[in-house]
Design a protein around this nucleic acid. Structure first.
Length: 202
DNA sequence: TGAAGGATTTGT
DNA sequence: CAAATCCTTCAC
């Protein structure tokens, strides 16, 4: 176990390539309208930034990408391929368009029975940017909101508690190229947690 | 105002 | 590999 601590907005105020790998191992939390929570550990991310031809904000500021130009710690949710949503965290300083695409989460088990019955199915529910938005019910009504516990969506650091600190090991990350883009394909701005069943693609 | 294409997923 | 499916962007 660990101690959850909501991430402050200024923590995101660094280049997306710096923030992205540090987000792996953090917890993405969704609070639904009825007050219930669902969350999972981030296991796969991609960084997008200025001077990056794959970035939605590469050409110019538009109504859709405007939030990427604003202050860090806000959500950027877009709709794609007619049926999926993708969730990003806006990074870097105000005025610098950048964000981290959250590509996969390892959904936390809600009951021990679920963990015993369907470990692989559970892992796959959040394995992909479109799938994690589906399982957390994220759509464009959640774009341009600050990611704090006052919102229906936020991110937490999971710090080890004193009893387990000695057993903690650094997370093993794999850094590689991004998926599904046609420009900037050679930039190694995708990271995932080595060995995780919830990663969308190895 | 129209057309092309997309930071995806799934099934053939 | 192509379909599903619709929003965003860009051209005219």
């Amino acid at each position: 176990m660990g101690i959850a601590q909501p991430i402050e907005q200024h923590w995101f105020g660094r280049p997306s390539q710096v923030v992205a790998p540090e987000l792996i191992g953090c917890r993405l939390v969704r609070r639904f309208a009825d007050g219930s929570l669902r969350h999972g550990m981030i296991v796969e991310v991609e960084a997008y930034g200025p001077d990056d031809p794959a970035c939605h904000a590469y050409r110019k500021r538009t109504p859709r990408n405007a939030v990427m130009f604003g202050p860090p710690g806000y959500s950027y949710v877009y709709f794609i391929y007619g049926m999926y949503h993708c969730f990003n965290v806006v990074t870097d300083l105000d005025g610098i368009p950048s964000a981290v695409l959250i590509r996969a989460i390892a959904l936390d088990v809600e009951t021990p029975a679920a963990a015993a019955d369907l470990p692989k199915a559970q892992a796959k529910l959040g394995a992909g940017p479109g799938k994690l938005c589906r399982v957390l019910d994220i759509d464009r009504t959640l774009t341009e909101i600050p990611l704090t516990p006052l919102s229906p969506l936020w991110i937490e650091h999971l710090k080890p508690d004193l009893h387990t600190a000695a057993a903690q090991q650094p997370l093993e990350l794999v850094q590689t190229t991004r998926i599904g883009i046609t420009q900037g394909v050679e930039l190694p701005w995708r990271w995932y947690l080595k060995g995780s069943l919830a990663v969308s693609k190895r």
